[in-house]
């Protein structure tokens, strides 16, 4: 018992607290000057905006993929099911260089999109693509077990009461899986905000344009601007702790609702 807590403190809690202590050492004005500078604000905007967009795309397609995995039979289903976890297993740097070589203007997909005037690599759109890759399994793995457990009888009850298939989905199934979907969304969003490895290759990293917040921290560090890095990290930590709290509240809500 004691060992557990000591180890937790040594590896996780004490190191994390340094951020807050260091940030506190800056004083309020100092903190605002670096942590909320124009460059930092545009980095937060990019990180949070692209993470939100990617999580939204994943909410739709992740739900669709969870649905076909939970409900339908098709050849190679087991294989597809296993493949969904690829982003968890594939090192982010590998994903990063793979995505940029696909979406660069001479890449397989980039060369198809270029004539349409769509540039993905080295733009915020590229960040979204990378975050879609990273976030997909969070949604699928949150929703899939809930969908599989959802009894057929509830859907049949809706059918016998005259509901169309779409009404059954939107009014019976969707509310039932909403907490799981939201949990997955929050997890994907939180991961997306902090993601670094897969993004930096494809993002372009132009200050004020395509520079994500984690990259800004690294940049500050490379310039030995420790206070700047700390302030930004502090803002991100607060954001991710809020997300964590939200996820826990969502899970408590789920547990309460699924209690008979």
């Amino acid at each position: 018992m004691g060992l557990t807590i000591v180890w937790l403190c040594l590896i996780v809690l004490i190191p994390l607290s340094t951020i807050f202590l260091r940030a506190a050492g800056l004083g309020w004005d100092g903190f605002v000057a670096v942590g909320l500078s124009a460059r930092a604000l545009s980095a937060y905007k990019l990180s949070f905006g692209t993470a939100l967009l990617a999580a939204s795309v994943n909410a739709v397609f992740g739900l669709l993929i969870a649905w076909i995995l939970a409900r339908y039979e098709f050849p190679g289903k087991k294989f597809v099911d296993a493949a969904v976890d690829l982003p968890f297993a594939l090192p982010t740097a590998v994903a990063g260089i793979a995505l940029v070589s696909l979406y660069a203007e001479n890449g397989w997909i980039g060369s198809l999109l270029a004539p349409l005037g769509i540039r993905v690599a080295y733009t915020p759109l590229g960040v979204v693509v990378a975050l879609i890759f990273i976030g997909l399994p969070f949604i699928v793995r949150s929703v899939q077990p809930v969908l599989a457990d959802l009894g057929a009888d509830v859907e049949e009850a809706a059918a016998t009461l005259g509901a169309t298939r779409w009404q059954t989905f939107s009014r019976v199934i969707l509310p039932a899986i909403a907490p799981a979907l939201l949990t997955g969304f929050a997890l994907a969003f939180a991961r997306g905000v902090g993601e670094y490895g897969s993004v930096i290759f494809i993002a372009g990293n132009m200050p004020y344009k395509s520079e994500i917040a984690p990259l800004l921290i690294v940049t500050q560090l490379e310039q030995f601007d420790y206070p700047g890095a700390t302030a930004i990290a502090c803002v991100m930590l607060v954001a991710s702790f809020s997300m964590l709290l939200l996820v826990n509240l969502l899970q408590a809500w789920r547990a309460k609702r699924s209690a008979k």
């Binding site: 994390l16 951020i19 902090g194 670094y196 890095a229 990290a233 930590l237 991710s240 997300m243």
Partner: peptide, 10 residues
């Protein structure tokens, strides 16, 4: 839920 970069920073 901590960004890897922040993890390194600490």
């Amino acid at each position: 839920s901590v960004s890897p970069v922040v993890a390194g920073l600490i």
